[in-house]
Amino acid sequence: MNAQQRERQQGVARTIRRTLLALVLMVGFTIALVPLYDVFCEVTGLNGKTSDTAQVVAGGDVDTSRKIEVQFVTRTSAGLPWRLASETHTIWVHPGEVALARFTFMNTGLEKTSGRAVPSVSPSEGARHFRKMECFCFQEQWLEAGERMEMPLVFQIDPQLPQGVNKLTLAYTLYPQGPVLGGTYEH
């Protein structure tokens, strides 16, 4: 083995170390992308997701110069014999004002089951300005067969809401919770 070949072999070893390092970094980056995406969405309102923990009331004045129409849409999904209804379709609030909306859950099935309401806000730019102080969507709910329960949503529209937005739609989709087997839900 001559000098040139030794040098080449060392070079190859170095390159492999570097590419493997790059590979590991990329794997790490990929794993990091999932939480990064959530952070990114929360900051930019990319996907209309709202915060999944209770927020405190933002201080500051109520902006009485404008009124925002907040619209509620509810859906249930396959596999959960529940109904979810909102008391009203829309309420009008001033930015900064703390408001309350009531939702009624009903289990029309024959067994005790659990479900969770997943919120989404449109336009998605409004998502991060939709502050929820109390919401049934923070955790899963259990209902006995035939049980009916009323649950409140306490929220506030951040006065920072962009000027162009004057209507927010909050959609709740009710999903079954519990063991997920083979990709389909047991009920």
Binding site: L23, M26, V27, F29, T30, I31, L33, V34, S77, R116, V118, T173, Y175, P176, Q177, P179, V180, G183, Y185
Partner: peptide
């Protein structure tokens, strides 16, 4: 590695009950 990551997350969603891509979870 990104492709590998995506399909691994799919595998976890399908077989191990995670919900990377499932709104229900």
């Amino acid at each position: 590695p990104v492709l590998a990551g995506v399909i691994t997350m799919m595998l976890l969603d399908i077989n191990f009950g995670t919900s990377f891509f499932d709104a229900a979870g």
